[in-house]
Every structure is written in structure tokens, then in C-alpha cells.
Simulated scan of single mutants.
Amino acid sequence: MDFINGLIRNDVFLACFLAWFIAQLIKVILTFFFENKFDASRFVGSGGMPSSHSSFVTSLATAVGLKRGYDSPEFALALVFALIVMYDAAGVRMAVGKQAKILNSIIDDFQHHKKHPITEKRLKELIGHTPIEVLAGAILGIIVAQILI
């Protein structure tokens, strides 16, 4: 119970959680607005605008900087962590999404010609982020932390 109580009172964690929540909510709203459909899976899914990973980790770095100082080792640790996560979101995970798209196309082509039936499920293509999605998530995270801390 102390863990839960401590977490609820931890303003740094709450800033991170709220930044993630808002980013995921924006994804649902944008999907509804641009695709005219309500897709609740966008609330927990990865990829898309804005990057909730980026908002989560930049709110952490910003909150730690505000609480401990931007010259503290804790801020340096949070910043390095944030940079790695954002690089991964825009680099590695984006490449994985592109590969999934190509593989799905190959699977569709095989299925269409019925030469080699493939029973595997389609791969998830929306995994990573464009640099703009990462930047938007980062800005959201900074703003949320600045407001809450």
C-alpha cells in the first residue's frame, strides 16, 4: 500500500503518466477526426502522432530537471534515457514498421497467387514514429511537466 500511496503522491510520475495519457488520447482523437472512426486500440497502441514514448520520457527529464536542477546527475540520466528512447522510436522502430509493411505486401502477393499459403498473421506496421511525431511528443511532455511541477 505504501508503494501505491507513494506513486500517487509522486508528482514526477504523475507528470509522466499524464503526458503519456494525453498523447494516447490525442491519437484516438486524430484517428476519429481523419479516418472518421473511433479506434480505442489507438489508446494503447504504439506509433502515430504524437509519440507517447517521447512525451513520457521528456516529461520525466523535464520534471527531474525542475526538481533536481539541470546540472544534476539525475537530470543527465533522465535526459540520456529520453534521447535513447526517442532515437529508438524514430529510428529502429520506424525501420521495423517499414519492414513489416514490405513483408505484409509479400504475404499478400503470395496469398493472391495461392502458390504458398501463409497462415501467419499480418505484422503490425504502425510501430515507430516520424521525427515530427517524436518532436510533437517531446514538446507535449515538456509542457505537461512544466505545468505540473
Rank of each mutant, 00 (worst) to 15 (best):
F38T: 05
D39M: 11
D39Q: 13
A40W: 11
S41D: 05
S41A: 09
S41P: 00
R42K: 13
R42L: 00
F43S: 04
F43M: 07
V44I: 15
G45N: 07
G47Y: 03
G47L: 03
M49T: 13
P50W: 14
S51P: 03
S51R: 11
S51V: 10
S52G: 08
S52K: 08
S52E: 04
S52V: 03
S55R: 12
F56K: 08
F56H: 10
V57N: 01
V57C: 05
V57Y: 03
T58R: 04
T58G: 01
T58P: 00
S59M: 07
S59I: 04
S59F: 07
L60W: 02
A61S: 14
A61N: 07
T62V: 02
T62M: 12
T62K: 04
A63C: 07
A63F: 07
A63E: 04
V64K: 04
G65K: 09
K67A: 10
K67V: 07
K67S: 09
R68T: 00
G69D: 02
G69N: 04
G69Q: 04
G69F: 04
G69R: 02
Y70C: 00
D71M: 07
E74N: 08
E74D: 12
E74S: 14
A76R: 13
A76S: 12
A76G: 05
A76M: 10
L77M: 09
A78E: 02
L79M: 11
F81R: 02
A82K: 08
L83D: 00
V85D: 09
M86K: 10
M86T: 05
Y87C: 05
D88L: 08
A90C: 13
G91Q: 02
V92Y: 15
V92W: 15
V92E: 13
V92I: 15
